[in-house]
Write a protein that binds this DNA or RNA. Structure first.
Lengths: 339, 339
DNA sequence: ATGAAAGCGCTAACAG
DNA sequence: CTGTTAGCGCTTTCAT
């Protein structure tokens, strides 16, 4: 039988003070005598005391947890994002609980309604399928910050980059390198998925500004945003009577899958086909050739999102939703230019 | 002011029963009349009741959380592992808290001593630097399951594959393809790091069995197990008077970095240099060429580890440490064989 | 099969 | 600056 976990009262007894005083010391309450503090700290150390977090949560109404809900943690973009969120949260002494939604409306609804099997002080949600309309009258008042895409009607705080503009820039980059037959991989059938809709819009506009029509056979839908879907989609593009000379993929995993397929069948990148993606995951700098992509300022997204949560938690729950836009850069690598 | 979160007593009042009865329904206590249960469930739904987890934890002594501590979440192997652990934990209705240790002894010590800023029912720790000796007399009795590497003296439950044998098999595979100058990337200066020590041992034995001496200039140390370290190490191997014709990297990220470097400088893989890694991360099937690697049964590791925790939590805290060995396969891809 | 009462370990509000 | 009291919302005995 292991020794029971020491309680505040044990520490208080040992230090010869009241429980409240020990609590004051632990919580850095300013008005404690140096002498008392040292005494208490000695007792704390001697007993190897650790606060009982559930008890503190119950008493204080704060849990010290925030939830980070992303479509899937094994997507490198999201695991890299998670690392940034954890770092940002640490500055506020928050612990991050990672939740996977699969991007499904049902799972995302559970998150915004606070129906997860734990209590959190705030939620950072990378939205995929829920629309602004779905977010009206949510049945929970936990502060919520959306990340992912700029959503049109603002009913919640969000932090995001401009996918339309980024897709426009990236498509324009492809056109400037002399490409004329630019295809796109990553359309989703369900138009609630903002990512593909917005990126397609940027692509469409860039083509329009260059006087080029969107060709239906150059627009390839995918089921998921994974490498294998990119590889399959690339295969169908190559099978076309007139294959594209450039392909814009809606994320890096799709592009990396497409690249793998091109390398396998011996189509030269970028000579025969140029390739670009979104998100600048670590891997994209090490592919052969390295991938041109959109690098969001993911660290900023994480920090601003957590900071927004902190503001809401420190009383500001009534001011209108805040919308924070973050930067991106077009990272030009050898998949589009033989520099 | 949002409506207050309903409490058990609110539900009890609405349903016209006692608090205890509501609690019974929520916790699937068997002896509840059908009629009563339906009444309570209706009230639960009407009020949109959600248990207050900290309160439950305080009263029951169980938190419903387990910690998963890994070196870094942005390493794909660990994020993929995390997904498996979360899935396995869900079967026990546990929520997984992911902790990053950076592989440092200090951080790992905090984990085994339960000094994380939250309370958990159990811990799954992927050990990197702590030795069995460090694990003796830990100051915490939270059930702990180690994963990562088989450790010699067993003082805690663990689930792991056999790195020595895997490295032996992989090196042997390289030798069988006709390679004679096999280098290795991934040695760490600190011998407490079991991964590199064990994998080197397997490499050494395979060479010895083939009558080949380990060449010091073919053993390249790294600071970290990341792509860039692999690329740099590969550069130094190529600069040798007699470069290797095969390189065993101690994880896939190192191998992928090395591959990137080889592709950049125009050394053909596998013709000029064969390359192999460990872990079989998703990415490794899509590199150019795809990477030969060791595929651990990561799903089994996750499931067995969580199951072990469950056993310990259901009373069995005294039986001797359990050691579970999991399978691996040598996945042969084009980085070593032109099939 | 259901209810009443106690208490988990902490913080908050107030008193001194 | 420190102590006292109450109570957070649930589960656990123990009765009935």
């Amino acid at each position: 039988m292991p020794p029971a976990r020491p309680r505040l009262s044990d520490v208080a007894a040992l230090a010869g003070v009241s429980q409240k005083t020990v609590s004051n010391v632990i919580n850095d309450y300013p008005h404690v005598t140096e002498r008392t503090r040292l005494k208490v700290e000695a007792a704390l150390r001697e007993l190897n005391y650790r606060v009982n977090i559930p008890a503190r949560s119950l008493a204080s109404g704060r849990t010290g947890f925030i939830a980070l809900a992303v479509p899937s943690l094994d997507n490198p973009y999201f695991s890299e994002l998670a690392v940034h969120v954890m770092a940002a949260a640490a500055a506020y002494r928050w612990t991050v609980l990672i939740e996977q939604t699969g991007g499904s409306p049902d799972a995302e609804t559970l998150v915004v309604d606070g129906a997860m099997p734990y209590l959190v002080d705030g939620i950072v949600l990378h939205l995929r399928s829920l629309t602004p309309a779905d977010l009206r009258n949510r049945s929970d008042s936990t502060p919520l910050v959306l990340i992912g895409e700029k959503t049109p009607h603002h009913i919640a705080d969000y932090v995001a980059g401009d996918s339309v503009q980024a897709a426009y820039d990236l498509t324009t980059h492809l056109l400037r390198t002399g490409r004329t037959r630019v295809a796109v991989i990553g359309i989703e059938r369900d138009t609630r998925f903002a990512t593909s809709t917005l990126r397609f819009e940027g692509y469409r506009r860039a083509l329009a500004d260059a006087g080029i029509d969107v060709r239906d056979d150059y627009v390839v839908p995918v089921e998921r945003f994974q490498r294998e879907n990119g590889a399959i989609a690339m295969g169908s593009l190559l099978a076309l009577p007139e294959p594209p000379d450039a392909v814009l993929c809606f994320n890096d995993l799709l592009a990396l899958g497409a690249l793998s397929h091109l390398n396998t069948v011996g189509v030269a990148v970028p000579r025969d086909v140029a390739l670009a993606g979104f998100d600048d995951i670590d891997e994209s700098a090490y592919s052969s050739p390295p991938l041109t992509t959109i690098a969001w300022d993911t660290k900023a997204i994480a920090e601003r999102a957590v900071a927004l949560l902190a503001e809401r938690l420190s009383g500001d729950s009534d001011s209108p939703p805040r919308e924070i836009s973050v930067d991106y850069t077009v990272v030009q690598r050898q998949s589009t230019t033989l520099s």
